[in-house]
Nucleic acid binder design. Sequence first.
DNA 1: GTTTGAATGAAACGAACGTATGAATCAAGC
DNA 2: GCTTGATTCATACGTTCGTTTCATTCAAAC
Lengths: 209, 209
Amino acid sequence: MATPDTRTQILDAAEHLFAEHGYRGTSVRAITKLAGANLAAVGYHFGSKAELMAAVARRVVEPITAAQCAGLDKLLARTPDPPVGELVEAFAGPLFDEMPAGDEGGARTSRLIVTILSDPAEEARSWTGPAEDSVRERYFAAFARVLPGLSPEELWFRMRGIFAVTAVDRLQVHQQPSPGCASPIAGEASRRWAITFLTAAMSAPPIRP
Amino acid sequence: MATPDTRTQILDAAEHLFAEHGYRGTSVRAITKLAGANLAAVGYHFGSKAELMAAVARRVVEPITAAQCAGLDKLLARTPDPPVGELVEAFAGPLFDEMPAGDEGGARTSRLIVTILSDPAEEARSWTGPAEDSVRERYFAAFARVLPGLSPEELWFRMRGIFAVTAVDRLQVHQQPSPGCASPIAGEASRRWAITFLTAAMSAPPIRP
DNA sequence: GTTTGAATGAAACGAACGTATGAATCAAGC
DNA sequence: GCTTGATTCATACGTTCGTTTCATTCAAAC
């Protein structure tokens, strides 16, 4: 196969390393070395390390956002009040499905997502566009409609809970070394575990005020 | 009040900064400056930055682990099959209750915990002792007893979900700017939201095999 | 008063970082 | 063949990092 251009190889390498070691734990030198490119290539193609991080984040998140949006469209075309479980699946499912370009299993994607969401370095998080805000607000409205009685604050808390649980693979500390955790199987199982877990959680009655 | 000794002031400052900016985002210079101590004091009192991180983590986590352990003892003394909600509360509650020594609201603790759990730098995570393993395994056994039919893998997934949701405050990206989110109120509300959310989630039926 | 050991202070070390510079390379257009 | 613009290259700059060194301070012991 033809080797992709330098820009793409840098994106792949950066995606890999940012997911593994976070923004600050990854040096431009390590990225270009893994990509087989020159140190100055990052500056040339992306401008700076922060802009490279933004490009990586966009490349990973854009298809997820699109899938979330399409899933909601499909659901709402059928009925304005879809079951909670289907809303959860449409929202959280794409976080499992989407694979990184280089790919060696979906686990890397979820690790990158939690880096994007929770990395202490602001550079890792200051990239979102209006598309992400929009799809999140549409889901918020949909959940609010099928879960009446929930205060906006509690509903936002629960939606953040979806992100948190989805990213749970990253919290590998305290994780029992489970035998036979082959990547694709465990990935598909995680997906079903998460949907089950989150559907029940989202459906919980509101706390009494 | 008498100013505490240098060692304690460094611990307080480090706890603050590690929670805010993560392990790699916090420099020893920033810590000693905030603590009003000399740069070399970290080396003298703790040996290295990594050992300082471990000391900070231990100081925060030890009372939490103790409270989790005591809560489980109390519960199991009453009945071998406590309700799921009470198990969740005994496990997750201390993650909200415990306050850092310096303290300016409990939010900082949960942020530090998520740093401890998910910081990409291994130094932030390589400190756990047998006490943490033990209490986690005891809760695992208790949950397994009251949630029969759940595979061990799915139960571990759900327990990691508890950590994830508890740490959800840290995922401030994508967070709606909610008016009037005074710290103590929001903290207590978060606790109740989380317990509700997680009790429903833990009680979900297992996925069909 | 002198000694002693813990604690603090000022300064410097080498390494690694992100970024910038300017020459070298290369394919396409004329 | 020459030019041009895009890309790659080796290299260096200035900064910041964690750590170390060694002199100094200081309270208690003798």
